[in-house]
Amino acid sequence: MPDPTQPAIAFENVTKSFDRAGGSAVADVSLAIRRGEFLSIVGGSGAGKTTLLRLAARLIAPDRGTVRIDGADVRALDPVAMRRTIGIVFQSGALFPHMSVADNIGITPRLAGVRAAEVTARIDRLIELVRLDGRRHRARFPHELSGGERQRVAVGRALANTPSIVLMDEPFGALDPLTRDALSEDYVALHRGLELTTVMITHDITEALLLSDRIAVMQAGRLAAAGTPAELAGSVDPYVAELFGTPLRQIARLAALLPGATPGVQR
């Protein structure tokens, strides 16, 4: 049982560089993510968001600094065993194209050595949990699904081995707005219901503001700011202020453009 006093994930002065010239993808980042927290990571392309996520899953090792999961240095853990306890939703799903929906979801518990009968039961439960239709979707293959359905399967796969931590890399990025809205709200419900710790990368500031307990802003490999939506919206840092001012400015422009529209009454 993890120590409840420890943060779920902790980055301590973590640096990671990919090129020999010394340009860092992640430079001296320190950040603690509390148990049960929903943290979004925002920032421009190449700011180091994905690198941070890969470091947390021990898909890569830091050059300097320490990454801790539930207080334990990941270097001391068996990476394969550790990854099985974490759920990951990859960019654009990355479902295994040669496996059916059921097999994609069942892969994580199966790898962890869960009994076949229990795996089947979990697949059924997760298909329901991510609001897919068991009868229609169970035996289908990824190429037979819509984008939204694929992302639901990806979430199901991440949750199938009952992780306490879920890492998501732009999980809803490629979806149409309606699907995106529905899926993200469904996910937040799961996050709360299953008492997960979630770290989500997103490009969408609005999405980050709406879903997150806390937001981390990455800029050129460094952690530029971290705080609740309200704290960041009032930041004096020019980059952060610019970033979080965007949705409000868009709303103002939309209101001017469409004077008759009243936001936020449907649903």
Partner: peptide, 11 residues
Amino acid sequence: QLIEAARGVGM
């Protein structure tokens, strides 16, 4: 991406 996903799910 699929190789990364395979590593990520703990293979």
